[in-house]
Amino acid sequence: MASVSVSHLIIFIAALTVSVGVATTLTVNVQSMTASMDERGESVANDIETDVTIISDPGSPASIYDGAGNVTLLVKNTGDRPIDIENDPPDVLIDGRYQPSPTVTIIGDSSTAWGEDDVIRVVVDESLEPGGHRATVRTGSAEATMRFRVN
């Protein structure tokens, strides 16, 4: 009879040990998932708050393309948060081709943050043939596209 109690005690201790291990693993996984969901939620919130609009006048092609290989775009931050353009400059595509190293300056401000309702000037070196063209500016998940003609 004592041997039955001892075997039950050993099985009980083993069951407790396994359940503690499972509980510890689940707790760590739940904490990891919670942290991941918090980060993802913050990222989605930033994406929702970020928006840009190209405000260059496509009806005035000389203000966009100077004929000497420079495309100049005026882009307004129409979102609800400032954008750090020093550490994360906007991506620029001209006719679907990525333009490395655009020159980006904030108009009327010398800070590195592109504030709400502020306008930046983006200049890229790209020779364009006469005809229709498309310029796209991306920052984060925000994207603005403008079509214009070169004479």
Rank of each mutant, 00 (worst) to 15 (best):
residue 2 A to R: 10
residue 3 S to A: 15
residue 5 S to D: 15
residue 5 S to Y: 10
residue 5 S to W: 09
residue 5 S to E: 15
residue 7 S to R: 10
residue 7 S to F: 12
residue 7 S to I: 13
residue 9 L to N: 11
residue 10 I to A: 12
residue 13 I to V: 15
residue 13 I to A: 14
residue 14 A to S: 11
residue 14 A to H: 04
residue 14 A to N: 04
residue 17 T to K: 08
residue 21 G to M: 12
residue 21 G to Q: 10
residue 22 V to R: 06
residue 23 A to I: 07
residue 24 T to Y: 14
residue 26 L to F: 12
residue 27 T to R: 09
residue 29 N to R: 13
residue 31 Q to I: 03
residue 33 M to D: 14
residue 35 A to R: 15
residue 39 E to M: 09
residue 40 R to H: 11
residue 40 R to S: 10
residue 40 R to K: 12
residue 42 E to Q: 14
residue 42 E to R: 15
residue 43 S to G: 10
residue 43 S to R: 13
residue 47 D to R: 08
residue 49 E to K: 15
residue 52 V to M: 05
residue 54 I to S: 03
residue 56 S to T: 05
residue 58 P to E: 02
residue 59 G to Y: 06
residue 60 S to W: 08
residue 62 A to Q: 09
residue 63 S to I: 04
residue 63 S to R: 08
residue 64 I to W: 01
residue 65 Y to G: 03
residue 72 T to L: 03
residue 72 T to E: 00
residue 75 V to K: 04
residue 75 V to T: 04
residue 76 K to Y: 04
residue 76 K to P: 00
residue 79 G to M: 04
residue 81 R to Q: 09
residue 83 I to G: 06
residue 83 I to T: 01
residue 86 E to V: 14
residue 89 P to H: 07
residue 90 P to I: 10
residue 91 D to M: 11
residue 91 D to F: 09
residue 93 L to I: 02
residue 93 L to D: 08
residue 94 I to W: 04
residue 94 I to K: 03
residue 97 R to D: 12
residue 98 Y to N: 12
residue 98 Y to K: 07
residue 99 Q to L: 04
residue 99 Q to F: 04
residue 100 P to F: 11
residue 103 T to L: 11
residue 103 T to E: 10
residue 104 V to K: 01
residue 107 I to C: 01
residue 107 I to H: 00
residue 108 G to Q: 06
residue 110 S to R: 06
residue 112 T to V: 13
residue 114 W to K: 01
residue 114 W to C: 05
residue 115 G to H: 07
residue 117 D to S: 14
residue 117 D to V: 08
residue 120 I to C: 03
residue 122 V to C: 05
residue 123 V to E: 08
residue 123 V to S: 00
residue 123 V to I: 10
residue 123 V to K: 02
residue 124 V to S: 02
residue 126 E to P: 00
residue 127 S to K: 02
residue 128 L to A: 02
residue 129 E to Y: 05
residue 134 R to Y: 08
residue 137 V to A: 02
residue 140 G to V: 05
residue 141 S to A: 14
residue 143 E to M: 15
residue 144 A to V: 04
residue 144 A to W: 06
residue 145 T to G: 07
residue 145 T to S: 12
residue 145 T to Y: 08
residue 146 M to C: 03
residue 147 R to L: 13
residue 149 R to Y: 07
residue 150 V to W: 02
residue 151 N to S: 13
